[in-house]
């Protein structure tokens, strides 16, 4: 087209295909209104096929509930075992050359320490007597000219001290005392239990990763089917000038809703199961003379569950949309 020819004509109807005449604020408003509209209408679309929507949400919900439930149970066991850590004792072996009087005053000082509730003094003589009684090596001990056993201070740490980190800090402080030869925490079995819990948590993480992959596939496949069911509509909207982003949007929001519904389903499932377990666990812990109560889904875990559901839903639909929308072009 020759420039001059174009300029010479006045066009009564201006091309306004991109809405240039609108004020920027109006356009931004329209943008958000549109997003909101797509958000609501994609929910409306799902509402129209309640059964298949519910089934998809249930699959996602179960896949999320498994690792989440496992995580909550393990956290409970950990909670329980950290209570036992509190009941662990620290044995301070006192150096041979420290006088009885010095040990007594050290015991008194330690009683005033922050992380310590109780200090019990076992003198060298008591230790020997105890050993003689328990070991049956009485005769052998008689032949010794000197008592080989050290005096011991048995410390009862406070519950707040149960955290592994603060516990090791306490041990460090105790070891630095001049009179102390060795400070030993009697909790090997708690360590082992923690090790088992760690293995469990790692398994939950791996299981979670696998199931996250499954969710991606489920959402991706569901969205793929929706895309093909709405093929005609996609072609028509492309012909009217829709960008890929515009066409992607409703499918992404659909993925968002699937993820959110799945996460809520998972939350309900886990809460329901914990609710069912609560009474028998309380009875069990009563039998063990314990105050332990089964903890539920805390705020952080719930938030994490919700976020991972939504993100997986979005990611699944993003994958499907990326792979299948481009292929649909008008002919």
């Amino acid at each position: 087209m020759k420039r001059s020819a174009r300029k010479s004509r006045t066009r009564p109807i201006k091309p306004e295909a991109r809405g240039k005449s609108q004020k920027p604020r109006g356009r931004i408003n329209a943008y958000f209104t549109h997003h909101l509209w797509v958000l609501v209408s994609s929910l409306g679309q799902l509402w129209r096929t309640p059964l298949s929507t519910l089934m998809t949400a249930a699959v996602i919900g179960i896949a999320l509930a498994l690792p989440a439930g496992l995580h909550v149970l393990l956290s409970n066991v950990q909670q329980l075992s950290s209570g036992w850590e509190g009941s662990a004792q620290v044995s301070l072996f006192i150096k041979q050359d420290v006088s009885e009087k010095h040990i007594q005053s050290l015991a008194n000082t330690l009683r005033d320490w922050d992380g310590v509730t109780e200090v019990h003094y076992i003198s060298r003589e008591q230790a020997l007597a105890e050993f003689r009684e328990l070991s049956g090596f009485g005769d052998a001990l008689d032949s010794l000219t000197e008592n080989p056993l050290p005096a011991v201070l048995v410390l009862q740490p406070t519950l707040a001290q149960a955290e592994p980190a603060s516990m090791s800090r306490l041990l460090e402080r105790l070891r630095q005392l001049d009179a102390v030869d060795q400070a030993q925490l009697d909790m090997e079995w708690v360590r082992r239990l923690n090790g088992i819990i760690d293995v469990g948590k790692r398994s939950a993480l791996l299981l979670g990763t696998l199931l996250a992959l499954a969710i991606l596939l489920v959402v991706g496949n569901t969205i793929r089917l929706t895309i093909y069911a709405r093929r005609e509509e996609i072609i028509i909207t492309k012909l009217i000038g829709a960008t890929n982003a515009f066409i992607r949007r409703p499918f992404l929001y659909t993925g968002f809703w699937y993820g959110l519904m799945g996460a809520v389903t998972a939350w309900l499932l886990v809460s329901g199961f914990l609710g069912l377990l609560r009474t028998p666990v309380s009875q069990l812990s009563f039998l063990y003379d314990s105050q332990f109560r089964l903890g539920g889904l805390d705020f952080i875990t719930s938030l994490f569950l919700l976020l991972s559901g939504v993100l997986l839903g979005l990611a699944g639909s993003w994958l499907a949309v990326g792979r299948h929308l481009q292929a649909i072009e008008p002919t």
Binding site: G19, Q22, A30, I236, T237, G241, T243, F246
Partner: peptide, 26 residues
């Protein structure tokens, strides 16, 4: 005709404007 059969006449005609990002009142 290439109309979207699950949308009303109004919504069909509105589609190009919504695609172009017009304000609802417009």
């Amino acid at each position: 005709h290439s109309l979207l059969l699950d949308r009303t006449v109004f919504d069909n005609v509105a589609l190009p404007l919504i695609i172009a990002g017009y304000h609802p009142s417009e």
